[in-house]
Lab assay of single mutants.
Amino acid sequence: EFSMMFKHFDKDKSGRLNHQEFKSCLRSLGYDLPMVEEGEPDPEFEAILDTVDPNRDGHVSLQEYMAFMISRE
């Protein structure tokens, strides 16, 4: 189920989600993330990124995504 969600939000089929795609994916899974303006701080989402994209390369791989989802179950 999680990998299907990942593929759905991987719009460019790159095998990874940019942070915006990842945020959309989390919202569709029921995460209550506040709407913030582009460039505004988003501490809740930043905290999630610290876990799922610790190297802050700007992308979430399928492996990082799956590890995050399994840790939340």
Rank of each mutant, 00 (worst) to 15 (best):
residue 1 E to M: 09
residue 1 E to R: 12
residue 3 S to T: 09
residue 4 M to Y: 06
residue 6 F to Y: 06
residue 7 K to G: 06
residue 12 D to Y: 06
residue 13 K to M: 04
residue 17 L to R: 01
residue 17 L to F: 02
residue 17 L to W: 00
residue 18 N to A: 07
residue 18 N to V: 03
residue 19 H to V: 04
residue 22 F to S: 07
residue 23 K to T: 00
residue 23 K to E: 01
residue 24 S to C: 15
residue 24 S to T: 08
residue 25 C to E: 02
residue 25 C to F: 04
residue 26 L to Q: 00
residue 27 R to S: 09
residue 27 R to N: 15
residue 29 L to C: 12
residue 30 G to V: 00
residue 30 G to A: 04
residue 31 Y to N: 05
residue 31 Y to T: 08
residue 32 D to G: 10
residue 32 D to M: 10
residue 33 L to H: 05
residue 34 P to A: 12
residue 34 P to C: 10
residue 37 E to Y: 07
residue 37 E to H: 10
residue 37 E to P: 14
residue 38 E to R: 11
residue 38 E to N: 13
residue 39 G to S: 07
residue 40 E to K: 12
residue 40 E to A: 13
residue 41 P to V: 12
residue 41 P to D: 10
residue 41 P to T: 12
residue 42 D to V: 04
residue 42 D to T: 05
residue 43 P to Y: 05
residue 43 P to W: 07
residue 44 E to C: 10
residue 45 F to V: 02
residue 46 E to V: 03
residue 46 E to L: 03
residue 46 E to I: 01
residue 47 A to R: 14
residue 47 A to W: 07
residue 48 I to L: 06
residue 48 I to R: 00
residue 48 I to V: 09
residue 49 L to G: 00
residue 50 D to W: 01
residue 50 D to T: 04
residue 50 D to I: 01
residue 50 D to C: 03
residue 51 T to A: 13
residue 51 T to C: 14
residue 52 V to G: 01
residue 52 V to S: 01
residue 53 D to F: 01
residue 53 D to G: 02
residue 54 P to N: 03
residue 55 N to R: 13
residue 55 N to I: 05
residue 56 R to W: 03
residue 56 R to V: 03
residue 56 R to T: 03
residue 57 D to S: 15
residue 57 D to I: 15
residue 57 D to C: 14
residue 58 G to P: 00
residue 58 G to Q: 02
residue 59 H to C: 12
residue 59 H to F: 15
residue 61 S to F: 09
residue 61 S to T: 14
residue 62 L to F: 15
residue 62 L to D: 04
residue 62 L to I: 10
residue 62 L to V: 08
residue 64 E to D: 15
residue 64 E to A: 15
residue 66 M to P: 02
residue 68 F to H: 04
residue 68 F to G: 02
residue 70 I to N: 08
residue 71 S to F: 06
residue 72 R to H: 11
residue 72 R to A: 15
residue 72 R to C: 09
residue 73 E to L: 07
